[in-house]
């Protein structure tokens, strides 16, 4: 099934819940990406500077539709700019994780032997470990900043790619066409590049989407705990954390809007990741995690 079939919902897909989930997710994510890219042109106020007096409630003043926070920053502008930061960190984290995890998975699965066992052991150990705790330790050592947080998060996901790719590689390397290539004297790189990799990479796509969801959540969590992005940076997690003291005064909008954006973004990627494996292979019901 090709991508066009998928998106247009051909072959009776349209009716399935998975299709609807996938499409909802896709539209959420597309919207967020557009917001993130256009952020500098669409923010009504500078998100790094106070825009008005503090605690203007939302939906009262059209100039500050989502209200202002404890220092008079415009919540909408912060939320828009936060989209940019959250997606950026998540994107970097997923890319770093994939570019480390996939080659290692290929290598481990194809070569086997001691390398495979050692790598599998390390990866399994990391995989078993609660991700955010490892990320806290790493973020603590690396210090705040977009790239540092991305690296800290990436480390958690390397094993995920490794495991998926390794499992697929184990199957593919037994295939006849690989045997044939080997017999024809193709070298290691060639076999990997032209015969193995293209056949295992599709398995990584749903993982990618789910990792994206997780990465957004983890970044928000780290920033909430104060080990993520620096405290003046517009970011959903940072903003929720900075405003959590407002709750007792009954001021809800300063935590709610950034918080709900984390939820929406995570939901978008989760829906894609949920729908995708079924759509790619309707008989498979499980989720690859």
């Amino acid at each position: 099934m090709n991508l066009a079939d998928l998106i247009l919902g051909r072959k009776g897909l349209r009716k399935s819940l998975e299709y609807k989930m996938f499409m909802t997710g896709l539209s959420i994510v597309t919207t967020l990406v557009v917001i993130a890219v256009l952020a500098p042109y669409i923010v009504p106020w500078d998100p790094y500077k106070p825009a008005a007096e503090e605690y203007i409630p939302p939906f009262t003043d059209p100039r500050y539709p989502l209200g202002t926070n404890f220092l008079g920053y415009d919540v909408l502008s912060r939320v828009i700019w936060g989209t940019r930061n959250s997606l950026l960190v998540a994107f970097l984290a997923v890319m770093i994780a994939a570019s480390v995890g996939i080659p290692l998975g290929l290598l481990s699965g194809y070569v086997g032997g001691y390398i495979d066992r050692a790598l599998s052991l390390i990866m399994d150990s990391v995989y078993a470990f609660p991700g955010i705790i490892l990320a806290i330790a790493l973020a603590f050592v690396l210090g705040p900043g977009i790239v540092n947080v991305a690296i800290a998060i990436a480390v958690i996901y390397v094993p995920t790619y490794f495991r998926v790719i390794r499992a697929c590689t184990l199957v593919v390397r037994e295939q006849l066409f690989v045997e044939a290539a080997k017999a024809m004297g193709a070298d290691f790189i060639t076999i990997m590049r032209y015969y193995v990799a293209p056949n295992v990479l599709t398995a990584a796509i749903p993982v990618l989407a789910l990792n994206f969801a997780d990465a957004i959540l983890t970044e928000a969590g780290l920033s909430f705990l104060g080990v993520g992005l620096p405290p003046t940076e517009p970011d959903w997690g940072v903003d929720v954390s900075a405003a959590r003291g407002d709750i007792v005064r009954g001021i809800w909008w300063t935590t709610f809007f950034p918080g709900i954006m984390i939820f929406v973004a995570t939901l978008g990627f989760t829906l894609i990741g949920e729908g995708l494996p079924y759509l790619l292979n309707p008989r498979q019901r499980g989720r690859i995690r």
């Binding site: 959540l217 935590t255 709900i260 984390i262 939820f263 939901l267």
Partner: peptide
């Protein structure tokens, strides 16, 4: 699906606001 996507601290803060405050 929502339970995967909701940040636990958002859920917690909203519970604090509504059930607590």
């Amino acid at each position: 699906v929502a339970s995967y996507a909701v940040p636990v601290f958002l859920l917690g803060l909203m519970m604090q606001l509504i059930l607590g405050v």
